[in-house]
Simulated assay, not measured.
Amino acid sequence: MNKKKTYIGIAVIVLIFGIVVIPKIIDRVMRGEVVKNDRLNVAELDTVDDSNAELSYININGKDRKVPHFEFVNQNGDTITEDSYKGKVFLVEFFFTRCPTICIPMNKNLVLIQDEFKDDANFGIASFSIDPEYDQPQILKEYADQYGVTDPDWNLMTGEREKIYELANVGFNLLAQENPEIDGNFQHSGLFALVDQNGFIRSRKDDFGNPLIYYRGFIPQGTPETDDEETSQIDILIEDIHKLLNKNKNKNKK
């Protein structure tokens, strides 16, 4: 009889934890917190599962999140939409060319990733400027040349400010806003989104089985740990890109 009461007590505790604590964790992860300078802090998801398990989908309100429609102009003056990346694995970032802080390591990291997959036509990168009035195609072209952008599927894009900010804040849930109180006058996430060949946002899981959601792009590859106890996630991002590309290759062989 006492053993039965013990089991009932444990069940009640587990139920209460699920009702009270888990929704709060999910809410904090999805909402994020703005911290130093112009980036989004994701230190709480520092430990990640490095297994070969299939990458997770990002499920919100019962639906796996996909890249929404967009239509902007790239550094070459060409119109680019989400269909331009159809059948490709690609990364998404939000940046601006006059950024004096996190955009520098972000785009250096992207160049390293570009070079890793230089021989794979099924990989691309989508960079959206959050300072579109200044970042016109010629400025973006000069920036691309400065950083060594050579991948024909790496598009640095500009367009209507409202649409770019809607894509960032609503479409990807990645912070982008003006903030005259910080260097560069713009505040944005330093994270990369990983998108699969079908347009779904993907990620590996942390040690607790929760999707990592996005990858830290603002910490240089090889950095052991920052002052905020955050480590680089570029190596695991490269691993996960390989997973998606190899899965598609194996699928085509069948």
Rank of each mutant, 00 (worst) to 15 (best):
K3Y: 09
T6P: 07
T6Q: 15
I8Q: 14
I13D: 14
L15R: 08
F17Y: 13
V20K: 07
I22P: 10
P23E: 13
I26V: 13
D27V: 03
R28P: 07
G32I: 03
E33V: 12
K36G: 12
N41I: 12
V42Y: 01
A43K: 14
E44F: 14
D46Y: 07
D46P: 00
V48Q: 11
D49V: 02
A53Q: 15
E54Q: 15
Y57G: 15
I58D: 11
N59D: 13
G62D: 05
K63V: 13
K63I: 12
D64V: 03
R65V: 09
V67A: 09
V67T: 09
E71I: 01
V73A: 04
Q75R: 03
N76R: 14
N76Y: 15
D78A: 15
D78P: 04
T81D: 04
S84W: 08
K88L: 07
V92C: 08
F94G: 03
F94S: 01
F95E: 06
C99Y: 05
C99W: 01
I104T: 07
P105D: 06
N107C: 10
N107K: 10
K108F: 08
V111C: 03
L112H: 09
Q114Y: 02
Q114V: 05
D115C: 03
F117I: 08
K118V: 02
K118A: 10
K118I: 05
K118P: 01
F123R: 02
I125E: 05
A126W: 00
S127A: 12
I130R: 02
D135C: 09
Q136K: 15
I139V: 14
L140V: 06
E142Q: 12
Y147L: 13
W154K: 00
W154A: 01
R161Y: 13
E162M: 08
E162I: 02
Y165P: 03
A168C: 06
G171T: 01
F172W: 07
F172R: 02
G184C: 07
N185T: 14
Q187P: 07
G190M: 02
G190C: 06
V195D: 02
G199T: 05
R202S: 02
S203P: 05
S203I: 02
R204L: 02
R204W: 00
D206E: 06
P211H: 00
Y214L: 08
Y214S: 07
R216P: 00
G217F: 00
I219W: 00
G222R: 01
P224T: 09
D228W: 12
D228S: 15
I234K: 01
I234N: 03
L237P: 00
I241K: 06
L244K: 06
L245W: 00
K247R: 12
N248C: 05
K249D: 09
K249S: 04
K251Q: 13
K253I: 07
K254W: 11
